[in-house]
Design a protein around this nucleic acid. Structure first.
Length: 249
DNA sequence: CGTGTTTGACCAGCGC
DNA sequence: GCGCTGGTCAAACACG
């Protein structure tokens, strides 16, 4: 089931990338041309899975005007959530304090403004808004870099804008039942490996598992531990139903 | 009582 | 200069 899930995830991601690349030439540039000075990023959206996402980074190659980008590193993360969930909470391992919310012109859903709880010593800010195209996707824009370590849910470290892409050799699935904040309900994180990480990446034979039996045992153990977690099954059902709906493009 | 959220008001940048 | 818009402030409020 996980393999099928990965394959469908890959194909859906490819379709989404195609759509984005098609639209980026016309709508995106027109829409961003009227934006203010701070919005100088180009984005390569990467949709995550089951409420979590891979971050996309635009620090070095996106800013055409260096003067606009000196003050803060800007990155953006796309997070898939349950569309019925109205909260603008993106759990990325850091603790945030909300200081404002605003309805913007180009998007009917409100935009929430967060500061790192370590402010003012940590200057990082975060903006979270639902995607206008797909309400199930939260767009989190990070400004600045944390000058401290994460202090909750290290399992979500791959969501951090400063941590980069998660290591494909790390555990592909992690569950987190401990809520870092009182307002965040317990969730299950499903960080699926990309297809290249499943052992069929011929470019990097040293990372392949030599013994299929070990792989099989690992998969069985992961599946057993996951199926024991009722929150995982609920989250998986929600993710699959969301993907099915997304497929009707 | 301390901490975090909500929300209206205010401010600054930008285009006309 | 004026109006629009995004971003921030801060008092009021909620909650444990």
């Amino acid at each position: 089931m996980l393999t099928v899930l990965c394959e469908r995830y890959s194909s859906l991601q490819n379709q989404y990338m195609e759509l984005v690349s098609r639209n980026s030439g016309s709508d995106a540039t027109a829409a961003t041309s009227k934006k203010r000075k701070a919005e100088c990023e180009d984005y390569v959206p990467m949709i995550g899975f089951s409420g979590k996402a891979e971050s996309s980074f635009s620090d070095e190659d996106s800013c055409k005007k260096p003067k606009d980008c000196i003050k803060a590193k800007i990155s953006r993360a796309y997070v898939r959530t349950n569309p019925s969930d109205n909260s603008l909470i993106v759990r990325d391992g850091y603790q945030w304090r909300k200081y404002g919310q605003k309805v913007t012109r180009d998007n009917p859903s409100p935009r929430a403004y967060f500061k790192c709880s370590f402010a003012p010593s940590c200057p990082v800010k975060k903006k979270v808004q639902r995607s206008a195209e797909d309400p199930s996707i939260l767009v989190a824009t990070y400004e600045g870099e944390h000058n401290h370590a994460q202090h909750s849910t290290p399992a979500l470290s791959s969501l951090s804008p400063n941590s980069g892409t998660s290591n494909p050799r790390s555990a592909p699935v992690s569950s987190s039942s401990s809520a870092p904040t009182k307002s965040s309900p317990p969730t299950v994180t499903l960080e699926l490996m990309k297809p290249t990480g499943l052992g069929n990446d011929t470019k990097n034979p040293t990372q392949q598992v030599d013994e299929p039996a070990i792989q099989k045992i690992l998969v069985q153990q992961m599946a057993a531990s996951l199926t024991r977690d009722p929150t995982f099954t609920a989250a998986l059902a929600a993710a699959i139903s969301g993907k099915v709906l997304d497929h009707k493009w």
